[in-house]
């Protein structure tokens, strides 16, 4: 198994390499010039050229790529064109809200969706099942920004239960921190609840038809035990896969939610950087995300081991 993990980690390197090349090339192929944006509307071509020279954007493409990679290998993601700050520091400042929101969202989604899916499968064909399914269609179809503003309108403005938007770091107290995460979490988790509940239902429904479920009932076990110990654990592998995909999708999903709730996270950083053609920041964030994707996938593959003893790497 250690060999498997080492192999997978080693395989990360070529993946990241390809990502680096593609991101670098795509950004340069996209229209828009950071120097022109930085210089402002009234700038003369000479001023723009001067900025380009200062940023090193007038060097040949290969040379730019070479020096970027060289610094990358030394742990330096470069300096933001827009704010003139190191990209690593920018990411470090912005990563906490994103991680916090992603964690609360996925935890909340799993805690709600898995029981919903199990109960829907157990009471297959009844109004409970149909209710869960209807709810999940709703969860899939309501856009994040609509849901977000509905929550703000209902819970924050009308009932005044929660703050409208903003972010407080966990270092300033857990209460205020979690208070400001409730609405974004409710908003962002809807689609993941729908996704995970549907998958859990289908997977548990499959497993409930298996012989060992009949064996468990023949032993005189309670239904709750049949479901939790025998059905759910066997149904876990597809559910875990979907949760993994969910975590990966979440990273892109936070962008809109962070805008709606004004959270100073990576999503906002990325949007601002794209608008300003802030190449080093975009490159840094995308590299970080792709690294996270690879690690999430590895973590998912390793969780299979825990749930299914037949899987061996």
């Amino acid at each position: 198994m250690l060999r498997f993990v080492a192999g997978r980690l080693a395989a990360t390197l070529p993946v990241m390499g390809v990502v680096a090349v593609v991101v670098f090339a795509l950004l340069r192929l996209a229209p828009g010039d950071p120097a022109a944006i930085l210089a402002g509307d009234a700038a003369t071509p000479e001023q723009i050229a001067a900025i380009r020279a200062r940023l090193g954007l007038d060097e040949p493409m290969l040379q730019q790529f070479g020096s970027w990679i060289w610094r990358l290998l030394h742990g330096d993601l470069g300096t933001s064109i827009l704010s003139n700050q190191p990209v690593t520091r920018l990411i470090g400042e912005r990563i906490e809200p994103t991680l916090a929101l992603a964690t609360t969202t996925i935890l909340f989604a799993v805690l709600v969706a898995v029981p919903l899916g199990v109960v829907a499968a157990w009471r297959h064909g009844t109004w409970i099942d149909r209710g869960v399914m209807a709810f999940s269609v709703l969860g899939f179809s309501v856009p994040v920004f609509v849901l977000g503003y509905l929550w703000i309108f209902g819970l924050a403005m009308h009932l005044r239960l929660l703050p409208v938007q903003g972010y407080v770091s966990i270092t300033q107290g857990f209460g205020p921190f979690i208070e400001r995460l409730v609405l974004p979490t409710l908003t962002l988790s809807a689609i993941y609840i729908a996704l995970i509940a549907r998958t859990t239902r289908a997977s548990v429904l499959d497993v409930l038809g298996e012989d060992y479920i009949r064996t468990a009932r023949a032993k005189g076990l309670r239904e709750s035990r049949v479901l939790s110990r025998h059905a759910l654990r066997n149904a876990a592998v597809p559910v875990i896969s979907v949760i993994g995909i969910g975590i990966a999708l979440l990273i892109s999903g936070v962008v809109v939610t962070e805008s709606v709730f004004n959270l100073p996270g990576l999503g906002r950083l990325t949007v601002d950087a794209v608008l300003a053609r802030d190449y080093p920041v975009i490159q840094g964030v995308i590299l970080l995300f792709s690294g996270l994707y690879v690690l999430i996938n590895l973590a998912i593959d390793l969780t299979y081991l825990f749930f299914d003893p037949r899987i061996r790497y």
Binding site: D211, Y212, T215
Partner: peptide
């Protein structure tokens, strides 16, 4: 108590 036909599928594979 009951003993079933196919012991491979009648036992829970993950326990």
């Amino acid at each position: 108590a009951m003993v079933f036909q196919e012991p491979m599928t009648a036992l829970n594979p993950v326990l």
